[in-house]
């Protein structure tokens, strides 16, 4: 199927690339279908693009290159809602609030996007914790990046 995107023109995608957020995400309850468009092959960043509303797109990132000790427990209600059978199916992304540069951008570790890669169900999981908040700096360990490259 063809999807109109905000930043990548029209894309031809297969049905199994669609990610379903059954109840939307907080603040956007009406948009329930998204696709993830990676921003470069080795980049942790992707665009989370709404299929239903072309204007609605977020930058998301794999949080672990920035916060390698980031952790949370996935509670039963999440396992239930996403029908998670084993932990290898789980993918985690966090939403980035962009500033003028990456140095002034922040990442929301309080509410990770938890995806089941088997059935493409997703939910923004709001952590009931004060350990993380919605605006962590994006501090990439650049040394590691260089070594890897």
């Amino acid at each position: 199927m063809k999807v109109h995107t905000r930043y990548h023109g029209d894309l031809e995608i297969s049905d199994n690339e669609v990610i379903y957020f059954k109840n939307g995400i907080p603040g956007f309850p009406d948009e329930t279908k998204y696709i993830l468009i990676p921003l470069g092959e080795n980049s942790p960043f992707s665009v989370l693009q709404s299929i239903e509303l072309i204007e609605l797109a977020f930058v998301v990132t794999d949080p672990f290159p920035f916060y390698k000790d980031y952790e949370f427990e996935v509670p039963d209600y999440m396992i239930n809602q996403l029908d998670i059978k084993n932990k290898e199916e789980v993918r985690v992304y966090c939403i980035v609030t962009l500033g003028d540069s990456l140095d002034t951008s922040t990442v929301n570790l309080q509410a990770p996007l938890v995806l089941n890669s088997k059935n493409n169900n997703g939910k923004q999981f709001v952590l009931n914790t004060d350990k993380y908040h919605t605006k962590h700096v994006l501090k990439m360990n650049k040394k590691e990046m260089v070594q890897e490259g």
Binding site: P26, F28, L102, V126, T134
Partner: peptide, 25 residues
């Protein structure tokens, strides 16, 4: 906790992109 949910809602509103400079990444 409702105030956390409200904070996440408001952060999501702010995170919604209005433009994207792909060179940044």
């Amino acid at each position: 906790r409702k105030e956390i949910l409200e904070k996440v809602e408001s952060e999501n509103q702010k995170a919604r992109t209005t433009s994207l400079n792909l060179d940044m990444f």
